[in-house]
């Protein structure tokens, strides 16, 4: 809203090369970028919000199935990935800080470390997904829910009945395992499939965001290496950082929702 005179007066000083013509100051340009990025992230929040609503409804309806299926996930891998992502958020924040303080090499190193941690996360996800394929836990015609997880009802209580169970058919064994549940094995076969559909949709879309984030980060790293940023202008680093932290936040909610439905028992 500056008058032409004021604008001309500002032109007398040297512009920062990164300042766009339609912004009065670098601060104004930065503010526009920040609010724009947050508005984009809000659309992302509501995008994942729709999935969370679907999850909530089915979780309330088929809680026993969700608890059963959730126990089949490997808590070690899930916990490790949570730690890896939180650590990558720290390295990302350090990357932005290095850019803020004009440390070009440190910025590049922190960003590369962030990308490595993101790749570790995806690698663990590959291990987990292949495990799901092995156990027929991928929704579809080959989905089989067999209670073969020792953490469920086949624990200490089932041990005395083991001799009798040996003669039983697999279906009867399954029924025995779920005696305390409100769902029959057949219902469980169908409703755990809903859980795994949500599991693959939510973690899959999260992983897609991670892949996009790593792609984004490699461009930013290259730009940082080329010396495109300084303490006055590091907006792309900070915006990618906001995106990366957002993806971390989605996982902060996905971890308890998918891995920790009901771990006691």
């Amino acid at each position: 809203m500056s008058s032409p005179v004021a604008h001309a007066a500002r032109h007398a000083h040297a512009h920062h090369p990164a300042q766009q013509h339609h912004f009065d100051t670098m601060a104004q340009q930065k503010e526009a970028a920040v609010i724009g990025m947050w508005v984009f992230l809000l659309t992302e929040i509501l995008f994942f919000g729709g999935l969370f609503v679907a999850y909530m409804i089915y979780r309330v309806w088929y809680f026993d199935a969700f608890a059963e299926a959730s126990r089949s996930l490997n808590l070690f891998w899930g916990g490790l990935n949570t730690a890896v992502l939180i650590f990558s958020s720290l390295t990302m924040a350090m990357g932005v800080r290095s850019a803020q303080t004009n440390k070009r090499k440190a910025t590049v190193n922190w960003l590369i470390l962030t990308m490595i941690l993101g790749t570790v996360f995806l690698g663990v996800k590959v291990i987990e997904y292949s495990d799901k394929f092995e156990h027929h836990h991928v929704p579809g015609p080959n989905f089989v829910w067999a209670s073969e997880h020792p953490s469920t009802a086949l624990g200490a209580g089932a041990a005395p009945a083991a001799e009798g169970a040996a003669e039983q058919t697999p279906a009867a064994e399954g029924a025995a395992a779920h005696r305390q549940l409100s769902l029959t094995p057949d219902q469980l076969q169908r409703t755990t499939q809903i859980y795994f559909s949500l599991y693959f949709t939510m973690t899959g879309l999260h992983a897609l965001h991670m892949i996009i984030g790593i792609g984004l980060m490699s461009v930013i790293t290259w730009m940082a290496w080329k010396g495109k940023f300084d303490a006055e202008y590091y907006t792309p680093v900070e915006m990618s950082g906001l995106y990366w932290h957002f993806v971390d936040i989605v996982w902060i909610f996905l971890f308890p929702l998918l891995y920790l439905v009901e771990r006691h028992q």
Binding site: S89, L90, M92, A93, G241, L242, H245, F246, D248, I249, I252, F253, F255, P256, L257, L260
Partner: peptide
């Protein structure tokens, strides 16, 4: 679980972001 996750998310938004 949700309170802890919400608090964690708030820390990330408030300080990291």
């Amino acid at each position: 679980a949700m309170l802890v996750a919400g608090f964690k998310a708030s820390l990330v938004v408030w300080y990291f972001m």
